[in-house]
Amino acid sequence: MIQFEAVSKRYAAGRDGLRDINLMIDAGEMVFLTGHSGAGKSSLLKLIGLLEKATRGQIRVDGRNLGRLKGKAIARHRSRVGMIFQDHRLLTDRSVFDNVAIPLVVCAYSHQEIKRRVRAALDKVGLLGKEKTSPETLSGGEQQRVGIARAIVGKPPVLLADEPTGNLDPELSAEIMRLFADFNQVGVTLLIATHDIALIKTLPYRILTLNKGELSADSMNLHA
């Protein structure tokens, strides 16, 4: 599903983001990506979501060669990859419903379809009663769940999460991880960047470790 071949990312300042990454994630896998701050976790996710382009190497997602995509094709790719951020990135001047509906509006779903799908997504993350409220009035955990609902509402086959539990207490973090495991159960491929080693040690998934922009470890967590 996701394939990196000798991928490097160099930023304008001459700083290396990523160096010579080779990597293969199969469809339906759930993988954790860990490493220190600045190790390149976010860069790697941005390359997959096509928020940035690789300086060298080739990335394939779902058979698409990302380096070749332009204009509309970039937009289409982004709609097929759900992204979740630590800072949620919600629009505070719109209701929870409107925030979750954005990906569907972009794809021109009918009004009824949007309503049905948004309610289903909010139900999935346990926020069905909060459609009309402003995201600002919600707790950090709830805002994160709105962000997750927005990422899954278009039913993308790939979900990327960048420190989704960064600001949450352990209990809420575990709850979010259970949610991700549920998505994985129905076949969604997930790549979750986190530095919460304690949490992922308890979960039976593959762990990729980045160190200074290089892939230093790729192991299956068998201890959980």
Partner: peptide
């Protein structure tokens, strides 16, 4: 600005 970024993030084309 922020709204436009999020729109593009979830797959909006420039035309949209």
């Amino acid at each position: 600005h922020e709204e436009i970024e999020i729109m593009k993030l979830v797959g909006a084309t420039t035309a949209f």
